[in-house]
């Protein structure tokens, strides 16, 4: 199963701000290059873009969870 990993250690966010909806909901289709979340590293924010495509995404890391580099954020089917 293809997965999307965190490129950096930090805090994972599923939306660009608390007031906006998540970039992707569970079950959404994902194209290569789609932004699926943000990683905050030392107060700077980095987009996480999918390097693979899939018909349905399932997040395995929750919003605001701490992650290490390489941690699986979501699975694709």
């Amino acid at each position: 199963m293809p997965v999307i990993q965190s490129p950096l250690p930090g805090t994972f966010y599923r939306s660009s701000s608390p007031e906006t909806p998540p970039f992707k909901q569970d079950g959404d289709a994902v194209a290569v290059g789609d932004v699926i979340g943000l990683i905050e590293v030392m107060k700077s924010f980095h987009e996480v873009k999918s390097e693979v495509a899939g018909s349905a995404i399932t997040f395995v890391t929750d919003n605001e969870d701490p992650v290490m580099a390489g941690a699986v954020l979501a699975e694709l089917s």
């Binding site: 250690p9 805090t11 590293v41 030392m42 107060k43």
Partner: peptide
Amino acid sequence: SMLYPGYTVPPFYDS
């Protein structure tokens, strides 16, 4: 400083 040899700087706070 808060550094010492072997210390891992966490990514969650300021730099």
